[in-house]
Design a binder for these strands. Structure first.
Length: 508
RNA sequence: GGUCCUGUGGCCGAGUGGCUAGGCUCAGCUCUGCAAAAGCUGCUACAGCGGUUCGAAUCCGCUCGGGACCUCCA
């Protein structure tokens, strides 16, 4: 097993990842609130954890990956007051709240699929776990960690800390500071302490989504669902909990308090937070009006976009930075990413078609490479490949540093291209290095980074047109040759005209 | 105001105190019907000032700039 280090927000350092019961790993990621389309910033977080899931699986762990759908309880505006986001949309559009939920859940799934994200093993919803949430609130009341007030139930932070809890340990906040800085919000009278947060909220009559509870009609508080669902599917203690940086406080802090209060132990051992996607240096968010929807990106239809960018270009773009760094969005950066992605994916096609040819063997009319009698092993290149392969795993083990992993991948790409272009006989690398080159290059791109080819429409007739091209070429009918080239170009493809063979590639 | 992060070459973006990250762009070369691609070569940066050190982009201090969270947000 690879020695993976993960930056743990709890300890503020990179900790060696040691699962509670290897080879099994429990991974919980906070999913979206489905009241609206996911934007690109949301996507970044989910792709970061998709990559983590992929890597954990790649290195041999059996991962149970749980990512929830928040379909109730998330309020608009400040704190524990205000309308439910989903309720509001439902009223606005005069439809059932569950229609809103369904629509944006579908959208979310579509989008993630386009980005080639692997669906989680379990995708629980908050409304599907109301019983658990009510029970959790009751348990907390029973332990003196929560209280009922006017039909709502609040978590008692003071009591929690008196019982040995440490509210603020995740986000590095000090309770007294929080108390001093808390703004005076309306309707806080129900709470004993402004920091107390809702486990269950009494529903106003006009609130559509409401259920019976021991405290009357109401709905669950936002933070409670994650505690209940992670506990149910991963146990009272599990390995990794992930989410966006902006959920660190208060959401995850509350989860820890709830989990600790109910089960007597801090829920997750490793807390991971993905950083924000920024536009011109500012966090991408709906309220700032600088967020892109994925389909706007794919179509290039947003005013800030100079051209369309494909899902894989975008995925590659995001992977070129480390998940804990902010990543700034710009057309220049996306364009550069597009070129890099195409180059890498052309290399992927090349690598997939590569076959090892021992130096003694005469391949007789070889398609992939000429026979290479008497080739001497190139120890320098072999060592360089070895170094880059190790570099990839070292990088991924270092808190999923995909940027450095990709840098090493480009080093390998050089050798893939040299073989593909017949500039380097495979035999010069020896079977072992060659095998490793191909296996790691392909495996990391496809399985860990989740990058794949984006076929174009004209793909079906490519081989036929290529055959024509060869004929025209042989007949030296260059005007026809150029015509075929134009056809390819119209499809976003290009012809690779090499000495030893003719192939097509994605236009870079 | 509090807590924290951050400032790298034309652009993006990694960097554990000493050894070329990488991508994109640009220039040249080889190859080529012409191209394209590929390979090779060139372009050596760390906001400013001071300190620690044999040695700092990397540690410390100050100054200036940017950002996040503190209120819903991935």
């Amino acid at each position: 097993m690879q020695p993976l280090k993960i930056y743990n927000t709890l300890t503020r350092q990179k900790d060696l990842f040691e699962p509670l019961s290897p080879p099994f790993v429990g991974l919980y990621v906070c999913g979206p609130t489905v009241y609206n389309n996911v934007h690109l910033g949301n996507v970044r977080t989910f792709l970061a954890f998709d990559t983590l899931y992929r890597y954990l699986t790649h290195i041999g762990y059996k991962v149970r990956y749980v990512r929830n759908i928040t379909d109730v309880g998330h309020l608009v505006g400040d704190g524990d007051e205000g309308e439910s986001k989903i309720d509001r949309m439902a009223k606005l559009e005069k439809v059932e709240p569950m229609e809103i939920v369904q629509r944006y859940t579908n959208d979310f799934h579509d989008v993630m699929l386009q980005f080639n994200a692997i669906p989680p093993n379990i995708e629980p919803t908050a409304t599907g776990h109301l019983i658990e949430q009510i029970e959790a609130a009751q348990t907390l009341i029973g332990k003196g960690l929560a209280y009922e007030s006017n039909g709502s139930v609040y978590f008692n932070i003071e009591a929690y800390n008196q019982q040995g809890g440490n509210y603020g340990k995740l986000s590095g906040r000090i309770l007294d500071d929080l108390l001093n800085e808390t703004r005076n919000l309306d309707g806080q009278a129900e709470k004993r302490n402004p920091l107390d947060f809702a486990l269950w909220k009494k529903a106003a009559p006009e609130h559509i989504m409401q259920w019976n509870s021991p405290w009357g009609r109401g709905f669950p508080g936002w933070h409670l669902e994650c505690t209940c669902m992670s506990t149910k599917y991963l146990g009272t203690q599990f390995d990794i909990h992930g989410g966006g940086m902006d959920l660190k406080f208060p959401h995850h802090e509350c989860e820890i308090a709830q989990g600790t209060g109910i089960n007597g132990a801090s829920p997750a051992r490793y807390w991971m937070h993905a950083n924000m996607l920024t536009v011109n240096g500012q966090k991408m968010s709906k309220s700032l009006g600088n967020s892109f929807l994925p389909h706007e990106l794919f179509a290039g239809s947003h005013p800030l976009l100079e051209q369309p960018y494909s899902p894989m270009t975008t995925r590659f773009f995001m992977l070129q930075s480390q998940y804990r760094s902010t990543l700034d969005f710009s057309n220049d950066a996306l364009r550069a990413a597009q070129k890099g992605y195409k180059r890498l994916i052309n290399g992927l096609r090349a690598a997939n078609s590569m076959q090892y040819i021992p130096s003694e063997e005469n391949t007789g009319g070889a398609v992939l490479s000429v026979s290479t009698p008497g080739v001497v092993a190139d120890e320098k290149k072999k060592a360089d490949i070895e170094k880059s392969v190790q570099g990839i795993y070292d990088a991924l083990n270092d808190d999923l540093n995909t940027a450095v992993a990709i840098a090493n991948l480009f080093n390998l790409l050089k050798y893939v291209n040299m073989i593909y272009m017949n500039q380097l006989p495979p035999a010069a690398l020896g079977a072992d290095s060659f095998g490793k080159l191909k296996e790691v290059f392909v495996g990391v791109i496809e399985n860990v980074l989740g990058l794949r080819e984006e076929p174009t429409q004209g793909m079906a007739v490519v081989e036929g047109m290529l055959a024509q091209y060869r004929q025209f070429k042989a007949a030296q009918q260059y005007d026809k040759v150029d015509e075929v080239r134009r056809c390819f170009k119209d499809q976003g493809l290009v012809i690779r005209d090499m000495k030893h063979r003719i192939d097509w590639a994605y236009e870079e």
